[in-house]
Design a protein around this nucleic acid. Structure first.
Lengths: 148, 148
DNA sequence: TCAATCCCAAGTAAACCACTCGGTTTTCTA
DNA sequence: TAGAAAACCGAGTGGTTTACTTGGGATTGA
């Protein structure tokens, strides 16, 4: 029941982009994201390629290029990012969100219901949080720190 | 975010034992469990060894021996079984239920909160279901089938 | 032009998974 | 008391996944 670094790093990168998403967003080079978030640049490149193909980020090539979010942070859910990088939420294949594979049909598998509930509870958490929420929380944390 | 077969098979085996746990429980040989649940016997042996060491099942050696639950089904939570076989619930190491490893301390990691929430929602589901609940549901399903 | 940047494909060491194999030891029953 | 049924034990194994690295090529602003 572990998340791989794909989802973890990918979310960090998306959060980084969200934190720098202004009214006139400037593209942020991968190198900067990787440094700020402490991730191998080449590895992150592979992850962000997936996010780009899925349409969560846009890229601008050439000098002064970089990446920007394809939509405002309020319209990107954490679940979108995780699904893009980790695939459908599915503790077991037979309860995958999308195209569940057939169980052994012999007898009804009682544990299936449990994993379906686990899946739904994970999805509920991930889909209830947007990148905007994360930015707001981050701002709050830094304010709290200054105050204390 | 996948469960391995360890947790899956282990829960099936425990459910099997629970379904045959009477007032005077007879030991059930591994071979029988493995056949009923469609699991490789030798592989299940390794899993049940873990469950035994942790104290969820008791073994009786020799002919007519086998395994029985160490406690009644009502006192064994699904979460107990999964934790025994898969380790503490922890989407990331830094939010492990038990002995979380240190995050990069540099700056507060905002995504940590998300994974902690995911962890808690998984734990909540798994700890709210006992083997007895599973048996009751199984009985209900088979009744429904007969009625329909 | 040239440096910054994105884009792409392949390779790789280590870990993990889902088993298998080949035994030894214990204990009930005939 | 032999023999079979069962638990117990440890090593091996082929395949997949993970988390990268390496080494380039294509695009574009200054």
């Amino acid at each position: 029941m572990r998340l791989s670094t794909k989802g973890h790093y990918g979310l960090k990168a998306m959060f980084d982009l969200a934190m720098h998403y202004g009214s006139e967003p400037l593209p942020i080079p991968l190198k900067v994201i990787a440094e700020r978030q402490g991730i191998s640049e080449h590895y992150l490149e592979q992850l962000i390629a997936v996010l780009r193909k899925i349409g969560l980020v846009k890229s601008i090539r050439g000098a002064q290029g970089g990446y920007i979010l394809a939509r405002p942070p309020s319209q990107i859910k954490v679940g979108d990012v995780i699904r893009a990088l980790e695939g459908p939420i599915a503790p077991l294949d037979c309860v995958s969100e999308f195209e569940p594979t057939a169980c052994e049909k012999e007898h009804y598998c009682i544990s299936r219901d449990i994993w379906a509930r686990v899946r739904d509870s994970i999805a509920e958490v991930l889909d209830s949080i947007t990148l905007e929420d994360m930015c707001r929380d981050a701002a709050k944390v830094s304010t709290d720190r200054v105050e204390s």
